[in-house]
Design a protein around this nucleic acid. Structure first.
Length: 215
DNA sequence: CCCGTGATTTAT
DNA sequence: TAAATCACGGGG
C-alpha cells in the first residue's frame, strides 16, 4: 500500500486539505496493532496572516515549533487540559502552515479504538472530532514532530488514484475559531458530503442522492 | 446550555 | 508571578 510521499505534502494547505479527504490515516501501536480510518474532514491553517492559526503573526514557540518544519511533519498539540489534535505540516520549510485532521471514518481496529474511548457507543462516536480521533488512535505529544513519510507509527496511505470529485465535498468556515475576526468566516474546512462520521451537530451537505420514485 | 482540565501564552 | 486563553468533548 503506497504511503503518501513528501511531494504530496509540499503544497498549499487549502490544496492539501482537499487532497487528504478520502485518504487513509494509519496508526501502528507499539504492539503492532494497526488502527486506521478514512479522512473525512480537514481544516487548513494558513500561517502568519491567519488569526486563527497558532503561528499567526509569525509566533514561534516550543509548542508550535513543528509547524516550521518541512512538509510531512506531524504537529500534535495538547489543549483544554485533556485533548490532543493532530495536524500535517505542508508548504515550504519555515512557512508555518498545516492541515488539521478533524474526523475519520474508522476502518481498521475498531475494537481497539473503542477500548481507548470508553464513552463511544457506536462507530460514529470513535473518530468524529479532532480530539476523539487522537484518543481513538492513541496519538499524543509523543508523536509531535515526527516525519510522516518515514515513521512507522503514523502515516497516510493513498487510496484510489486521484483526488475525490469536488462535488462530494462541502466547504464551510472552520469550527471553534470564533474570535478570529474576518478569518473566522473564511471557508477553510472541507468534509465529505453527507458522511455521518463528520464532527459537529449537523450532517453537512446531503448524502449522494438516493433514487426515490417520483410520485 | 455549562463545565472540566492543565499546558501554554500573555500581561503585569 | 498571575491571569487569560484554548483549532474540545461530554453531559444536561
Amino acid at each position: 500500500m503506497a504511503r503518501m510521499p513528501r511531494a504530496a505534502y509540499a503544497t498549499e494547505p487549502t490544496d492539501l486539505a482537499r487532497a487528504l479527504i478520502g485518504q487513509r490515516l494509519v496508526r501502528v501501536l507499539d504492539d503492532g496493532t494497526r488502527l486506521a480510518g478514512a479522512i473525512v474532514e480537514t481544516e487548513a491553517y494558513l500561517g502568519e496572516p491567519d488569526r486563527a492559526a497558532h503561528t499567526f503573526g509569525g509566533r514561534r514557540t516550543r509548542r508550535n515549533e513543528a509547524m516550521y518544519a518541512r512538509a510531512g511533519t506531524a504537529y500534535v498539540y495538547f489543549t483544554y487540559g485533556m485533548h490532543h489534535c493532530v495536524n500535517i505540516v505542508c508548504g515550504e520549510v519555515d512557512e508555518p502552515v498545516a492541515v488539521l485532521i478533524r474526523a475519520l471514518e474508522p476502518t481498521e481496529g475498531l475494537e481497539r479504538m473503542a477500548a481507548h474511548r470508553a464513552r463511544a457507543r457506536r462507530p460514529r462516536d470513535l473518530c468524529s472530532g479532532p480530539g476523539k480521533l487522537c484518543q481513538a488512535l492513541a496519538i499524543d505529544r509523543g508523536l509531535n514532530g515526527i516525519d510522516l513519510t518515514r515513521d512507522g507509527r503514523l502515516f497516510v496511505e493513498i487510496v484510489g488514484d486521484g483526488p475525490i470529485e469536488p462535488g462530494r465535498l462541502v466547504n464551510t468556515p472552520r469550527i471553534g475559531v470564533g474570535s478570529s475576526g474576518d478569518w473566522a468566516h473564511r471557508p477553510l474546512r472541507w468534509a465529505l458530503a453527507g458522511c455521518e462520521h463528520v464532527s459537529g451537530p449537523r450532517r453537512l451537505g446531503r448524502p449522494p442522492r438516493a433514487p426515490t420514485n417520483g410520485a
